[in-house]
Design a protein around this nucleic acid. Structure first.
Lengths: 104, 104
DNA sequence: GCAATACATAAGCGAAGACTTATTTGATTC
DNA sequence: GAATCAAATAAGTCTTCGCTTATGTATTGC
């Protein structure tokens, strides 16, 4: 797990889509594939990359492997982003709107 | 400019290094290269990718081109991250405090 | 134990991407 | 306007990466 792993993992649009799907709720690898024109090995490989970046973690349940968002990876992105907060005031309105959205 | 452009741009460690250097203060392309074992065209290409992702913007000054962090890209990352607020409540509080500070 | 199911790993292929050298464009100075 | 310097673009090479097919490893149920 490193910034490198994280950003490289998110650099692929398919992996971001997988992550976003997981963010809506934990799923096993097969369920994740539904509606996602992607082969079983490809999904497995993507999950391995996300796992290695601490963006996702697995919990084996019987013969299924349940995947869920790992907050560690997200926290790390937040940490990276916070280093540039000096530039946020320039976009304060956008941030304010963002927070408003989050409130409801 | 899209999430795709942004994450793809940050997916490369050299580009992140360039961005981080710029975050410490605006620099022209030549100055950026200092201490960075990277050719002039390579730097130019990296800057083009970062620019296209709205992570960086240029301002031509004479025959130099000054580069600086573009808050738009950062705001967009913040936006992406905010969609997963459910997984990092503590960080949201920090952001809220930050905005409160900035208000006065 | 054996068949079936869920997932992971191996090996190889093709496309994308990060570099290189060479050249071009734009701006300054004499 | 010729020489010089900063940066961008072009074209080609080599590496990385995301995919494929094939096979291996767990786990379940008969």
């Amino acid at each position: 797990m490193s910034d490198d792993d994280i950003f490289r993992a998110l650099g692929d649009p398919t992996r971001r889509a997988i992550f976003e799907k997981l963010a809506a709720g934990a799923l096993n690898a097969s369920a994740l594939r539904e509606g996602m024109a992607i082969s079983q090995p490809a999904m497995s490989q993507h999950l391995a990359v996300l796992r290695n970046a601490s963006l996702v973690r697995e919990r084996r349940q019987g013969r299924y492997v349940n995947y869920e968002v790992d907050p560690d990876g997200l926290a790390r992105i937040a940490g990276w982003l916070s280093r540039y907060r000096a530039y946020w005031p320039a976009r304060i309105e956008a941030l304010r709107d963002l927070l408003k959205d989050m409130d409801q």
